[in-house]
């Protein structure tokens, strides 16, 4: 589904991604961990087409097509979704209206009829229930004045409505209380199907108790320096990153 080959990117003259390789197949859940500033959000941003980042090498194929050649909206329509680490507030743009526009733009690109108000409302009601999101929140402007936890929940709610093939969750667990974490994780798990995939960026094993990954990768200094099964996350929880970092530094001293 997703194939990242030797991807390099820089921002404001600074190399951030220094050769990322990653393959994600349908039905898989990948976790990406790594210290602050290692490039996790940058990788996510590059995948969804944020223009501040300059691609300096490598390629990304999504379902065999050159993902990097597409505009941000085209990637979304192709089925790539990012739940942002820091969702922006958009004053004046109503949440429900926004989501309906988004869904119908995606449907249009696939040759589907737009959902009418009634059908859309029914869809919203269904997804709202299992993310325990209140109607009053969705009648407000997008993320405006939302609490940290509400913003994260709203990201996953959007994911539920838009039903992407590849969902990237960037620290969706941070800022959530324990109960909310459970609700959101269950929401994410419900969306899991054999024909879609998830990349979960997190610092904490806690989330991975609920969203169980097939693979865990450690991103450090712009590269994936270690990959393993779900046990790797447990090991990281116990031992931190130092042992991996020192191993990397020995192998390739800067």
């Amino acid at each position: 589904m997703l194939e990242i080959k030797n991807l390099m990117a820089k921002v404001e003259g600074k190399n951030i991604l220094k050769g990322i390789n990653l393959r994600v197949k349908p039905g898989e859940v990948h976790a990406i961990m790594g210290p602050n500033g290692s490039g996790k959000s940058t990788l996510a941003s590059v995948l969804v087409g944020r223009s501040a980042y300059e691609i300096t090498g490598g390629e990304v194929l999504f379902e065999g097509k050159d993902l990097l050649a597409l505009k941000a909206e085209e990637r979304a329509r192709a089925g790539v979704f990012l739940a942002f680490q820091y969702p922006v507030e958009i004053p004046g743009v109503n949440c429900t209206y926004f989501l309906k526009m988004a869904l119908n733009e995606i449907r249009k690109s696939r040759g589907l009829e737009p959902l009418d108000a009634v059908d859309f409302l029914a869809l919203m009601k269904e997804k709202m229930k299992y993310l325990e999101l209140s109607e009053s929140l969705l009648s407000r402007a997008v993320n405006e004045g939302f609490s940290g936890g509400e913003k994260k929940r709203n990201e996953v709610f959007q994911m539920a409505i838009l039903d992407p093939k590849l969902a990237i969750l960037d620290e969706t667990d941070s800022g959530l209380d324990i109960d909310a974490l459970k609700v959101v994780a269950e929401g994410v798990n419900r969306l899991k199907r054999p024909d879609n995939a998830q990349i979960v960026i997190t610092h904490y094993q806690r989330l991975l108790d609920y969203i169980v990954p097939d693979f865990v990768h450690v991103l450090y200094n712009g590269r994936i320096v270690k990959s393993g099964g779900k046990d790797l996350a447990l090991e990281l929880e116990e031992r931190g990153y130092d042992w991996i970092i020192s191993a990397v530094s020995e192998a390739a001293p800067n």
Binding site: V48, G49, R50, S51, K71, A72, E73, R75, A76, R77, F81, L82, F84, P87, V88, E89, I90, V93, F98, L99, M101, A102, L103, E105, I106, S109, V142, Q158, L162
Partner: peptide
């Protein structure tokens, strides 16, 4: 930032 957010959800520029 708001423009990008909307685009990232499939809404054309």
């Amino acid at each position: 930032e708001a423009l990008f957010y909307l685009q990232s959800r499939g809404i054309g520029r």
